Each structure stands twice: as C-alpha cells, then as structure tokens.
Computed example of a mutant assay.
Amino acid sequence: MKFIKIKNYFRIKIMKILFIINYNKKFNYFKYLNNNFNYLNKVINKILIKINKKKLNKNNIINSINKYINNLNEIFLLQYEDKKFIKYILFLKIKYNILINIFDNFSFIIKIINYINKNNKLLIDIINNYLVNWSITRINIIDLIVIKIAISEFIIYYKDININIIINEYKLIILIFSSKNNINFINGILNNILKSKNILSLYDKTKN
C-alpha cells in the first residue's frame, strides 16, 4: 500500500503531460520530464543532507520534514503534487530507510505516453465499443485521458498487475481531478474494458 501514492504520482504526471500535448502537439515532454526529475532529485538530496546532519525524533518525522521543506527556496518552484511527493519520499527514507529512485519510473511514463500517442485511434475505438447510449465526445478531456492511461498501462503491463487494484488506484486519481459523479461511470467503463478477453490480445502487439 505504501507505493500506491508513488505510482499514482507518476500517473498524474502522465495525465498532465497528455493534457498539455492535447493543446500543444510540439510539447517536448521528454525534456520536461528529464528537467523535472533532475530538479526533484536535487531538492530531495538537499533536504536529506540537512536532515542527516541532525538527529531526528522518529515520532516527529512529518513536522521535521515540513520544516525543512518550507525553509527551502527551491520548493516554491514545484507544483502541489511535487511537494506532496517529496514529503512522502522523505518520509519513506527516514521512517523505513526506503529511498525511491524516481528515474526508475522514467521508462514507465515514456512507454505509456508513447503508446497513447501511437495508438490514440485504437484507444478511442476501444472506448467507443464499451459506451452505451453515450458519445465519447461527451466525456470531458481529463476523464478521457485517465481512461486512456489506464487502458494503456493494462495493455503494456497486464502480466504484472491486478485488474481490480489498478481500477481502484485510478479511482483515486479521478477523485482528485474530476467529479465524484463521474466515478461510477468511469469505473464501469474500465471494468468492462479491462476485464474483456479482447483487450488481452493487444498485449502481444506491444512486444512487436
């Protein structure tokens, strides 16, 4: 359960990049990601150095982390979810001695974005096939992007993931960025698509 927050952070990063690409096809997301990840690493390491110089009270980790983050000038250049992510990474490091290398997730993000860019028509067709008395044009852009990401992640990584878990994790993202009224609608679409036998045939094509 610890790592759901981390995985969802990178899914949200994908979502925001795809939202930008929707309006700016020339957006260099590879360069953006590389710069963003380098900057996150810089901030995390800088705070760790400060924290390691002092003995922390393990029962007061969150307050200590917040103190160092709030006193760091670089933090003001980061977005809200970046700040939350940094706090969580630092918490895992101090509390459990787990430090996540964010560049390990670089390929995860690139694979999904590239898949969506190359197979957008296929994804639209898949979604359309599972809409009942509803037009895909009526789905707002954020919800549509979330559905595309979920389908793409499942197609690429289906041997390594659990359908019910991945649907529940995407429901958390919908709660943050969309309307609560849309959860059942999107949950229904994802359930029908990801549990369809036809969707599994697309996995082998990603390996070609």
Rank of each mutant, 00 (worst) to 15 (best):
I149G: 02
I155L: 06
K111H: 03
L144G: 07
I136Y: 00
W134N: 15
D160N: 14
N105G: 00
I94L: 13
I102F: 02
V132K: 14
I113K: 02
D104H: 14
N129V: 03
I156V: 12
D125K: 12
D104W: 12
Y130K: 07
I110C: 11
K159E: 08
K148G: 03
I161K: 04
K118I: 15
Y115S: 07
L122H: 13
I136G: 08
I109P: 00
F103H: 13
K148E: 07
F154D: 01
N105K: 02
I145L: 12
K95Q: 13
I127L: 05
F154V: 03
I116W: 03
L99F: 07
N101V: 09
K148L: 00
I102R: 07
I116A: 05
K111Q: 04
I156G: 03
I155S: 01
N119W: 09
I142M: 05
S135K: 15
N119P: 04
I110L: 07
F106C: 07
L122G: 12
L131A: 01
D143S: 06
I100W: 00
S135L: 14
I124M: 10
N101R: 10
F106W: 13
I151Q: 05
I151T: 06
I142R: 11
K159V: 10
I127R: 08
L99C: 10
K121E: 15
N114P: 03
V146S: 07
I141S: 15
I112L: 01
L131H: 04
Y96E: 11
L122K: 13
N120F: 10
S152W: 01
K111D: 10
I112A: 08
N114G: 08
I116Y: 05
S135T: 14
K93G: 02
D125G: 05
L99Y: 04
Y115Q: 02
Y96C: 04
D125T: 01
I139F: 07
D104S: 15
L123M: 09
N101P: 08
F108P: 03
I116Q: 00
S107A: 12
